[in-house]
């Protein structure tokens, strides 16, 4: 077996193993591995920073939504307030109008009644005068007394 027979090459193998292992170890330790680690860390940092940025943006968006909702409820409240006010006002106005109209109608009824009564009186008194005239005429004709002398 050459592994155990070629004893003369043991030192050579050990020497070159040592040389290459040390070269490999040194270069990997001081150049290659730090480079790879830096690259991986850079990427991790990038991802992490983006995740934190994303969290910030989500918080911001949430606050915007909250703000929006608060404003929306406020506007809704205001709107219903306005509607209620308008309803009340309209109701009052219509009631006032009805009341005023009723008063006006009452007033007119009263006036009309007064006028009717007055006309009735004048008609009656006219009738009385006419009756008096005709009665006077009749009497003067019957009695031959001057009209002016008859006093009923």
């Amino acid at each position: 077996m050459p592994q155990l027979e070629q004893v003369e090459f043991f030192i050579s193998q050990l020497f070159w193993l040592g040389v290459f292992f040390v070269i490999l170890f040194t270069v990997l330790t001081y150049i290659t591995l730090p480079k790879i680690r830096a690259f991986l860390n850079q990427r991790d940092d990038f991802v992490k920073s983006h995740i934190s940025k994303q969290d910030e943006l989500i918080k911001k968006a949430e606050s915007i939504v909250e703000n929006y909702e608060a404003k929306l409820t406020e506007a809704k409240n205001q709107a219903s307030q306005i509607i209620n006010d308008a309803k009340d006002k309209a109701l009052k106005e219509s009631e006032d109008l009805i009341k005023a109209t009723e008063e006006k109608i009452q007033h007119e009824i009263k006036q009309t009644e007064e006028r009717v009564a007055k006309e009735k009186d004048t008609a009656i008194s006219e009738l009385n005068d006419q009756l008096k005239d005709s009665a006077t005429n009749f009497l003067s004709k019957v009695t031959n007394i001057e009209k002016g002398n008859i006093n009923l």
């Binding site: 090459f9 030192i11 050579s12 193998q13 020497f15 070159w16 193993l17 290459f20 070269i23 490999l24």
Partner: peptide
């Protein structure tokens, strides 16, 4: 000391 560059050392070089 015999530290000849052998085929073993050659493949160590290639590997490294």
């Amino acid at each position: 000391f015999d530290i000849s560059f052998t085929n073993s050392a050659l493949w160590m070089t290639i590997t490294t």
